[in-house]
Computed example of a mutant assay.
Amino acid sequence: MTIAALILAGGKATRFGGADKAFVPLHGRPLIAHVLDLLRPQVAPIAISANGDPARFIKFGLPVLPDAPDFSACGPLAGVAAGLAWAKRVNATFLLTMPVDTPFFPATLVADLSPGPSVAVYAGRQHHLVALWPVSFLPALEDFLHRDAKYKVRDALTLCLARPVHFTSSRDPFTNLNSPADLLPFG
């Protein structure tokens, strides 16, 4: 099993006033740097899912994958589809997806989620985008995105038969930092 990883950094960040969430500072460093610090010891290769000018990520030295035009209105599943296509090109069999606003995940995440397909669950809450997707799922995901107008990540995970992996700790390791107020406890 060969695993590649995709940092999902393409959200609109409306609760951050439209700021590029990947570059929102936490402890003086951008969120994406925190995510990379935890991912790099666990998995390679790594890519970034983001639209717009890819040059803003140049200092990270990673491929930047835009959404395919066919799926531009499909939310984060467009990023997952682009990531699966890239993972296939780099001969990976699974793709780990990680939202850029989730900088506190376990240093053992890849091992914990293996074997895939799988999805992280904490305290009964499924974290849909912290998942290990089989690269072979790409054609089924593309078909799903072409025919289903809802584009729910949960439904795509069900379709690929992702098993839930339950995590326990004193705090949610998949906490999303969605607004400036979410950063305050970690300041």
Rank of each mutant, 00 (worst) to 15 (best):
G75F: 14
N51L: 04
A81F: 03
T175I: 14
L8G: 08
L38F: 11
D70G: 12
A13W: 09
A131S: 07
S49T: 07
L145C: 05
A162G: 00
L132A: 03
D182R: 07
N91D: 15
D172R: 09
R56V: 13
A50M: 10
S136A: 12
R89N: 11
A50T: 10
V165M: 07
G124I: 02
A19K: 09
V43N: 04
V153I: 07
M1G: 14
Q126N: 06
A22Q: 08
G28I: 04
A140G: 06
P134M: 00
L159K: 04
P173E: 02
P115W: 05
P103H: 11
K152I: 09
T158M: 14
S49V: 07
T14W: 14
P66V: 02
R163F: 05
A82M: 03
I3Y: 06
M98G: 09
M1E: 13
D20T: 10
V43C: 06
L39W: 12
L26Y: 00
P45L: 04
P69L: 13
A47G: 08
L8Q: 07
W133I: 00
G52E: 03
M98E: 14
F137T: 04
D143C: 08
P180N: 00
W86I: 06
R171P: 10
D20V: 11
V165L: 07
L141F: 04
F94N: 13
V165N: 04
D37Q: 12
P63T: 01
I58T: 15
R154Y: 15
G124T: 01
V90H: 08
V119K: 05
A4E: 06
A78K: 01
A22N: 09
S169W: 12
P115V: 05
G75K: 10
P63N: 00
P180Y: 02
P134G: 00
D112P: 09
L77I: 02
T108D: 13
N176R: 15
L177S: 06
L138Q: 04
L31Q: 12
R56M: 11
K150I: 12
I7N: 08
V121P: 10
P103Y: 10
N176H: 15
H127E: 14
C74V: 03
L36I: 06
D53Y: 09
